[in-house]
């Protein structure tokens, strides 16, 4: 028993050392920084609750949360809706299924930088492909990234395009786990396709649904490259994401203490959001 204890500890040492240095210590240090002003160059100075007071009155802090919520409200339903359709569609065919699945999944593996650069051009107001298509069919152009009310929805749309493949394959795996007998029995009872979909497919995909919602939420709060490259957080701060705001405060303005306080509060919000989602979705 004692020997195995030593072996277990020895094998775990790399992780323990790693976790102490790169998880536990930063965790405590983040709390320390909340109460300090620090530009990263000089020594930190104690300022009590000034960072917190500032945060409570910081319009941009609230704005960045609202932006993330807007992103999620568009991104999550759209993603689930499309991924479900794709998954059901792919599940019902045999020929070329692997090909379609691979194509839909492609944006998932590609760097967000690539996706962002390409979509920045697709979204271009004056000569972007999307607006060219719209004017071709006689519709007015859309100010995708330059209109304050459209910018975040545009980013959410792009994020859906990038990630829907992942959720499609997750749903597809879920669908393949549903026994065929369920559908056969329902068909004998004379159930329509829609009824089968709503009564069998959707409930049995529940756990996958929860997963998709939680992954999308975490993803939404991690938004960075997209606004960083496409909009710089504008117009009118409409695409200022929480991580971009932390980045700006820390590395543009040199307020590491305040940025750390922001990070702390955002982390708490994310944890709460995920907890609430778990509760709600799992009891349903």
């Amino acid at each position: 028993m004692k020997r195995t204890g030593k072996i277990g500890l020895a094998l775990s040492t790399p992780y323990i050392l790693y976790a102490l240095t790169f998880v536990v210590f930063p965790l405590f240090f983040s709390v320390y920084l909340i109460f300090h002003r620090w530009d990263g160059m000089s020594t930190p100075t104690w300022i009590g609750l000034k960072n917190v007071a500032r945060l409570v009155n910081d319009e941009l802090f609230y704005q960045s949360i609202l932006n993330t919520l807007l992103f999620l409200v568009i991104n999550i339903p759209l993603q689930i809706f499309l991924a479900l359709i794709f998954a059901v569609g792919l599940n019902s065919i045999k020929f070329l299924r692997g090909f379609f699945r691979a194509v839909y999944f492609m944006p998932v593996v590609v760097s967000g930088v690539v996706v962002t650069i390409v979509w920045l051009q697709l979204y271009s107001y004056d000569n972007g492909i999307l607006n060219n298509l719209l004017t071709m069919v006689g519709l007015p152009r859309v100010a995708w990234l330059v209109s304050p009310s459209m910018a975040m929805p545009s980013i959410a749309l792009m994020a859906t395009w990038k990630n829907v493949g992942l959720y499609t394959v997750l749903f597809l795996a879920g669908l393949q786990g549903i026994p065929a007998e369920f559908y056969e029995a329902a068909t004998i009872d004379g159930a329509s396709f829609a009824r089968k979909f709503l009564r069998i497919t959707v409930p049995l995909l529940g756990p996958t649904m929860t997963l998709v919602v939680i992954l999308s939420t975490i993803n939404g709060f991690s938004l960075f490259v997209e606004p960083f490259v496409m909009t710089g957080g504008g117009p009118l701060n409409a695409t200022l994401s929480s991580v971009l705001y932390i980045y700006n405060q820390a590395f543009s303005f040199g307020h590491l203490g305040y940025a750390s306080a922001l990070g702390f509060v955002f982390a708490v919000i994310i944890l709460l959001a995920v907890l609430v989602q778990r509760r709600v979705l799992e009891t349903e």
């Binding site: 210590f25 965790l27 983040s30 991690s222 991580v243 940025a259």
Partner: peptide
């Protein structure tokens, strides 16, 4: 469960 936002800045200082 820890979001990376929490330790981003402290990690940088490390």
């Amino acid at each position: 469960t820890l979001p990376f936002q929490l330790t981003l800045i402290p990690l940088y200082t490390m």
